[in-house]
Amino acid sequence: MKILVPVKRVIDYNVKPRVKADGSGVDLANVKMSMNPFDEIAVEEAIRLKEAGNATEIIAVSVGPAKAQETLRTALAMGADRAILVETDELVEPLAVAKILKAIADEEGPGIVMLGKQAIDDDSNQTGQMLAALMGRPQGTFASEVAIDGDHVSVTREVDGGLETVKLSMPAIVTTDLRLNEPRYASLPNIMKAKKKPLDVKTPADFGVDVTPRITTTNVSEPPVRQAGEMVEDVDALVAKLKALGAV
């Protein structure tokens, strides 16, 4: 069984995003970029499934600029077998990404498409669900546990009221939540080896997908700043203040 793992190059999660003064977006010039953390978890889970003998090949895919090759090399260094970059300098929306991924899935025939539940830049949380819809296949979103059982996969999902388990017939789409696993670091020898692993470069047009955005971002601004309040000296003052505010 093949596992397809889409990964996105995003601003590193340790970097505080700066909004551009002209409101056109977030300043990404000279900012450290990394693999979306939820996608790292997806890569790790795919590798663990392969290590457990449940998968034979892991294909990492990224839709993005030429520099997304670095993100794919990271996936390869972690343990993916080969990679496909669908190169474009456009900002591709989740729906268009899902269409590209569907075309790739049609060619590759993976048993599982494993992807992060959301990217930490646009926080859309859509691509996996959309891909599942386009493929007409089941989805196990926000996974905290994944278990293969013959031609089914059981996914434990982190839902508002607790943990929900669903059983999906494969091929299936799984989106990962934070506590599914702790991704490994790529070792230096594996980073060197990853440079020799195959990486195909395609374009959205190769898959016949129109990536014209449906949504226009007209402005990006700083969130309203909450003003710091008052520091109190001791618990008595805290209680008095709470009572004065009518908060207790």
């Binding site: 977030v26 930490i120 926080d123 959309m130 226009t216 990006v220």
Partner: peptide
């Protein structure tokens, strides 16, 4: 194309939504 997690309605097709974990607010149409 879905509009995720809107926090205000600005017009019939225009909304605001947090991006970058709430570090920025995008107005989208």
């Amino acid at each position: 194309m879905q509009l995720s997690d809107i926090i205000s309605v600005e017009g019939p097709k225009s909304f605001t939504r947090p991006i970058y974990a709430g570090n920025a607010i995008a107005t989208v149409e």
